[in-house]
Design a binder for these strands. Structure first.
Lengths: 324, 324
DNA sequence: GTGAAAGCGCTAACAG
DNA sequence: CTGTTAGCGCTTTCAC
């Protein structure tokens, strides 16, 4: 394996000059630049990223940790983050924390040991003490960790109201919403509050069902929705995250309810599962691409040693589908 | 930031001794071990992975490149790979090649520059010349690159036959199968051949529709399925990858066909989308967890300098659902 | 413009 | 069992 010294020797220059050429830095005469480039090509030289990392004390790797890549929302988030990071010159190290005890702790340790330059945290672990006193770049995605860690999230108040308006236009009278675990602090918990408020203001009845933390299986969702239809026979509106609504569609059919004739359904998030059938599910869509860009910009800034700056809070949009 | 020398000084030993303690290598007296551990704790010392990497010329990072993380099949693959690699002490650097010109080339370059110790390739780019003459660990997932790169894949002949048997049991007469692009060499292309053979042997009519490469959108699938129902009004069996079958379910409804009464449907892959509704889609399920383990074992062996060895070819299983 | 030399923070022989 | 020494392969001052 040829090294920078071999290239230097062949080109008849010093290693430092080769380095300058490779990194387009400083002033190098066209002539020596040519010589170096030829030597690089002749030796099919490939610089060692590992050595470079040590010199710069930087890896250009950002860690991304999510609860579960399989979940469409996180699939989409990971997809967008990878693209956003790529555009900014970073590579993405991915960790899916489900099935892994201590995944988040290990990940933060990897940040401390400089395996990555920064991390974007999308998990909801309960122990926030691991984030105390860390002076390395961390960005939280839709999760409040502590007051030193910037949070990237959409405008969930607006999102909740958007969904509420969509349902109220359809003249619902008894709405049931299914929400995530409320024992984790995250901006996304705001949307059902805003939703409920708007619904009540319109004089409409609303019941709320809370799911457990980190429960994502279709079976669990279906069970919950079945219960909903049994417990509230007069329900005519369902609101919840994408997969909940998918389950609602299935459960409704089982319980002899037609959607949207008997029951309206609005999904929150609007990932691709709401578009799997030709008749899209009506949904409040999170601007994941934009959010990923904001997260990438923020972590990038922190790595450069700058302050995170103010974080934009983008709005959701309504996807008009066939379910409401 | 404390370094290994600081720890050594505080503990009153040499840096090499500290290294031995940290890595549980060689023989260190209990006494000095204690001293070192205390010093480590007192300084909250975190060893630099970057420096370690240079010394060892190894990063413990495996690159994984797939066409599209959003696609359920690849979500699931990525999920399983990450877990399998994690269990073997590796971290996963993920690249989704869609929307990225030259992603595969860049990825292979990163392998050459030692950003990763090895890569697992699941993409289907057309230019295989970039893999010529590389002496670093590469494993292909369901894709034939060249005769030096080991391929991990399920037994698609058995899988195709499994699906065929399922349909023949239901007494189909005119089956349409939708398949991926055939201009890429991959073991998965075998399944529709095996399927077709079995179906023809049973004296059943079969038509085949080929999709373009890297087309994964629900809309595209739906369009294709709509055409199928229009062109073949007597079709009573549909076979294709998961998302095709999802689209088939939707399109069937539109065209007044009931599933499974009028048309049977069998999916190939059997990812979680086939289980999104309580009535699962009948499917030939790829053992992705097992495949991921095989891929991880193989790349691991190659990194250790061993030969890839023989690659097991696991079988698919039938998920009995409500569609056939 | 270019080269010499000093690291970056670890690991690994090899003495002792 | 522990310390000394020499790298790993780059980048980066700082003279020339």
């Amino acid at each position: 394996m040829a090294g920078i010294r071999d290239v230097a020797r062949l080109a008849g220059v010093a290693p430092s000059t080769v380095s300058l050429v490779l990194n387009n830095k400083g002033y190098v005469s066209l002539d020596t630049r040519r010589k170096v480039e030829k030597a690089v090509k002749d030796l099919s030289y490939m610089p060692s990223t590992i050595a470079r990392n040590l010199s710069l004390n930087r890896t250009n790797i950002i860690g991304v940790i999510v609860p579960e890549v399989l979940h469409p929302f996180y699939s989409e988030l990971v997809h967008e983050l990878e693209q956003a990071l790529y555009l900014r010159g970073y590579k993405m190290l991915l960790c899916s924390s489900s099935n892994k005890e201590k995944a988040e702790v290990l990940f933060v340790d990897m940040l401390k040991t400089h395996t990555m330059d920064g991390i974007i945290v999308g998990t909801h672990s309960m122990d926030l003490s691991i984030y105390e006193g860390i002076d390395r770049p961390i960005v939280a995605f839709d999760r409040i960790i502590n007051d030193r860690i910037p949070v990237v999230h959409a405008d969930h108040v607006q999102g909740g109201e958007l969904a509420a308006k969509a349902m109220l236009h359809q003249d619902c009278h008894h709405i049931v919403q299914v929400i995530g675990a409320q024992n984790v602090r995250c901006p996304a918990n705001e949307y059902h509050i805003a939703f409920e408020k708007k619904i009540r203001e319109a004089g409409c009845m609303i019941d709320t069902i809370e799911m457990e933390r980190n429960v994502f299986s279709p079976e669990a969702f279906y069970r919950v929705m079945s219960e909903v239809f049994e417990r509230y026979p007069d329900v005519d509106g369902i609101f919840g995250a994408d997969l909940i609504i998918c389950a609602a569609l299935a459960a409704a059919q089982e319980h002899g309810k037609r959607i949207p004739e008997d029951v309206k359904a609005v999904a929150y998030d609007g990932t691709y599962v709401t578009r799997l059938s030709p008749f899209a599910i009506t949904a409040a869509v999170q601007p994941l691409q934009e959010l990923a860009g904001i997260a990438a910009d923020t972590i990038s800034r922190m790595i450069m040693g700058e302050a995170p700056g103010s974080i934009p809070v983008p709005k959701l949009t309504l996807q008009k589908g066939a379910t409401c």
